[in-house]
Computed example of a mutant assay.
Amino acid sequence: MDIPTHFLYNDFPTFLRKYFPYKVQKISLNAGFTCPNRDGTKGWGGCTYCNNQTFNPDYCRTEKSISTQLEEGKCFFARKYPDMKYLAYFQAYTNTYAELEGLKRKYEEALEVKDVVGLVIGTRPDCMPEGLLHYLEELNRHTFLMVEYGIESACDKTLRRINRGHTYADTAEAVGRTAACGILTGGHVILGLPGETHDTMVGQAEILSELPLNTLKIHQLQLIRGTRMAHEYVDNPIDFHLFAEVDEYIDLVIDYVEHLRPDIVVERFVSQSPKDLLIAPDWGLKNYEFVARLQKRMKERDAYQGKKYKDSEKRIIFADDKFTT
Rank of each mutant, 00 (worst) to 15 (best):
F12N: 00
Y19S: 05
K26P: 03
S28E: 07
D39H: 10
D39Q: 12
G40D: 06
G40H: 02
G43T: 02
W44C: 07
G45V: 12
T54G: 09
S65L: 12
S67M: 10
E71N: 15
F76G: 01
A78Y: 01
F90Q: 12
A92I: 10
A92D: 08
E101C: 07
E101F: 04
G102D: 14
A110K: 05
L111Q: 05
E112A: 15
V113P: 05
C127M: 06
E130I: 11
L132F: 05
H142G: 06
E148N: 13
I151N: 01
D156L: 13
L159N: 02
R160Y: 10
A174H: 04
V175F: 02
V175L: 10
R177T: 07
C181Q: 11
L184H: 00
T185F: 05
I190S: 01
L193T: 05
G195F: 13
M201G: 04
M201W: 05
G203N: 09
E206D: 11
L208M: 08
T215Q: 00
K217R: 14
Q222G: 12
M229W: 00
Y233R: 10
Y233D: 09
N236K: 09
L242Y: 02
Y249C: 06
D255I: 11
Y256H: 07
P262W: 10
D263C: 11
V265I: 13
V266N: 01
A280D: 11
E289W: 00
L294R: 02
Q295F: 10
G306P: 00
K307G: 08
K310D: 03
K314L: 13
I317W: 06
